[in-house]
């Protein structure tokens, strides 16, 4: 019959986690987290996405141990250029006789760097602008949202191009450019959520306890906006990776000889017909990681988004 508990025999730990009468703050929080985890693992695709993301993190962390060759220094240019995948070079070699597998492994660090940096710059900015704007309303709202509109009106890649052109190419500038163009949607989401929360009784109740406006925003409004933002940011990761790769492809992101996936695809394009693996392998890496983040985002939405959750 449907509805049978997923774990046949609740262990002591599980009973402790699911207790209706937690004895401490931590037990309550862990229990809540555990319930979220349980509904997350109900979705096999979400777990696959999580696995891909974890794999990305592990690969980036242990690149030194995993990669068989140097990502920068190539082999013999006369005999080891553009070799097809083989036992020695699992994914073949590129035009500089470098092992593509090793370059992809090290490239994960750059991808992860971009993703993490963009999300820690863009998310707090968007969250703060959105909640402040939504909570205070009036002219603050008007000013902040018009600024947001201005940023929203720029095409992401074009602004990034202009930015990189002004500051000079490089992965840091690419990150800043992407971050600048990605916070406005977060601000809009946070504002929409805040507008719904603002007039609720529980906000009126803290107001009546004499809480200051920053305290209400940080302690009571932000926690309710964070989950939908996390979902949105995760779903945006794929786009961020693709933008970074696009900038790399155009030669405006990571500079040679850094093993950035987008730049690798760009170099491989010259040999696309005869040595397809040079462009295809980093392309597959971009595809898999983007897919992983998307699947994870979908799974998180089911767990975190109170409106979608049943």
């Amino acid at each position: 019959m449907a509805g049978a508990p997923p774990f046949p025999q609740p262990s002591g730990l599980q009973a402790w986690l699911l207790s209706a009468e937690p004895n401490s703050r931590w037990q309550a929080r862990l229990g809540r987290g555990y319930l979220g985890w349980r509904s997350f693992t109900k979705n096999p695709l979400a777990v696959l996405g999580l696995a891909i993301v974890i794999l990305l993190v592990l690969v980036a962390a242990f690149a030194d141990f995993i990669a068989p060759y140097s990502p920068i220094v190539g082999g013999d240019l006369r005999t080891e250029r553009l070799l097809p995948p083989s036992e020695t070079y699992w994914l073949g070699t590129d035009d500089q006789a470098r092992d593509i597998f090793s370059r992809i492994i090290y490239g994960s660090r750059i991808t992860l760097f971009v993703v993490i940096l963009v999300s820690i710059i863009a998310t707090p900015v968007g969250l703060l602008v959105g909640t402040v704007s939504g909570y205070l309303g009036g002219w603050v709202d008007t000013v902040l949202m018009r600024i947001t509109d201005i940023f929203l009106a720029f095409p992401r890649l074009v602004l990034a191009l202009a930015f990189v052109a002004a500051l000079g190419p490089g992965i840091e500038n690419a990150v800043i450019a992407i971050a600048i163009t990605s916070w406005p949607p977060y601000a809009r989401i946070a504002r929409a959520e805040t507008l719904m929360i603002r007039n609720s009784d529980f906000i009126a109740a803290v107001k009546l306890q004499g809480a200051s406006t920053p305290r209400i925003i940080m302690g009571h409004v932000v926690p309710l906006c964070v989950s939908s933002l996390i979902v949105r940011v995760t779903l945006d990761m794929a786009g961020i990776i693709l933008t970074a790769a696009g900038l790399g492809f155009l030669g405006l992101g990571a500079q040679p000889p850094m093993p950035e996936w987008g730049a690798m695809v760009a170099t491989g394009r010259n040999y696309l017909i005869d040595q397809w693996w040079v462009a295809a392998m980093p392309g597959i890496a971009i595809f898999v990681v983007s897919l992983g983040f998307n699947l994870l985002g979908d799974g998180l939405r089911d767990v975190l988004d109170p409106k979608a959750a049943k």
Binding site: F202, A204, P223, L224
Partner: peptide
């Protein structure tokens, strides 16, 4: 003050 709807007057994420 005590509000009408006890489902709306408590913060859903606060113990």
């Amino acid at each position: 003050m005590v509000f009408q709807d006890p489902y709306a007057s408590l913060h859903p994420r606060h113990t």
